[in-house]
Amino acid sequence: MDELITFRDIIKKSVLNLGAFTNVSWVDMCLSLLVAFAVGMFIYYVYRVCYRGVVYSHNYNVTFVLMTIITALIIMTISTNIVLSLGMVGALSIVRFRTAVKDPMDIVYMFWAISAGIAAGAKIYSVAIVGSLVVGLTIWWLTRRKEASSPYLLILHYEAIAEDEVKRRIRKMNAVLKSKTVRKELTELTVELRIRDDNTAFVNDFSALEGVKDVVLVSYNGEYAQ
């Protein structure tokens, strides 16, 4: 009986120890938040400089700074208690974000902010700082590289009299047909093509053709017209 009671006491003591909170010093807390803020601002700067999407959103960029700080707060909180950390994992697993992410690079920045916040909250400052520098320099280097040719969309509105000449010139440009809309007296043709060194003189050539009403050339990244 004594052995059974002793065993129960051990179990109770273990559970109580698991539920005990450990204090986070003011120095560690301030340092973690400072590192999280600094890394978050670095992410903010890289996103603003290297953004290549359609419409830049300042508010969306600010969320990366806040996400880094909040993640560090969560990690510092759950590190004080094992039971609390398990409960926090269960609570966060039911959270669903409904905001549509249009640019895949935005997901990269989200994971970057969360990872940096985890490292800062766990007091692994070298990982947060050095890792963020490597990621930031990689993004900057990749976005600054210029391709030999850039994709564009060429949109033509022309009458039937210009049909043959337009087709002949399109074939010479190795363009890819995207859409063609035929109305009673007017045809709308949209093709994708690549241009080297921003040579857009052919737009004037198309516009000078008899029967061509208007010519539009827009930058194209495969998904959005810019």
Score class of each variant (00 low, 15 high):
27 V>K: 07
29 M>C: 15
30 C>R: 09
31 L>C: 12
31 L>S: 09
31 L>D: 08
32 S>P: 07
33 L>I: 07
33 L>N: 00
36 A>D: 10
38 A>I: 11
39 V>T: 07
41 M>P: 02
41 M>F: 15
42 F>H: 12
42 F>L: 15
44 Y>W: 15
45 Y>A: 14
49 V>I: 11
50 C>P: 11
51 Y>M: 00
51 Y>A: 04
52 R>E: 06
52 R>Q: 07
53 G>A: 01
53 G>M: 00
55 V>Q: 11
58 H>N: 15
58 H>F: 12
59 N>D: 14
62 V>T: 12
66 L>V: 08
66 L>Q: 05
66 L>I: 10
68 T>Y: 09
69 I>R: 04
69 I>V: 14
70 I>H: 11
70 I>S: 11
72 A>M: 00
72 A>T: 00
73 L>Q: 05
73 L>R: 03
74 I>L: 01
75 I>P: 06
76 M>T: 06
77 T>W: 04
78 I>R: 01
78 I>P: 08
78 I>W: 09
80 T>K: 02
80 T>R: 03
81 N>R: 06
83 V>H: 02
84 L>K: 07
85 S>E: 03
88 M>E: 10
88 M>N: 05
88 M>R: 04
89 V>T: 11
90 G>I: 04
90 G>H: 12
95 V>P: 01
96 R>E: 12
97 F>G: 14
98 R>Y: 05
99 T>V: 13
99 T>P: 06
100 A>Y: 08
100 A>T: 14
100 A>I: 13
101 V>R: 02
101 V>N: 05
103 D>K: 09
103 D>L: 08
104 P>Q: 10
105 M>C: 13
106 D>V: 01
107 I>W: 01
107 I>T: 11
108 V>H: 02
108 V>Y: 06
109 Y>F: 14
110 M>W: 03
112 W>M: 12
112 W>S: 11
113 A>M: 01
116 A>R: 02
117 G>D: 10
118 I>D: 02
120 A>H: 01
121 G>C: 08
121 G>S: 03
122 A>Y: 04
124 I>F: 13
130 V>P: 06
130 V>Y: 09
131 G>Y: 07
132 S>L: 06
134 V>T: 06
134 V>R: 00
135 V>F: 10
138 T>V: 03
138 T>E: 14
138 T>M: 13
139 I>S: 03
139 I>G: 02
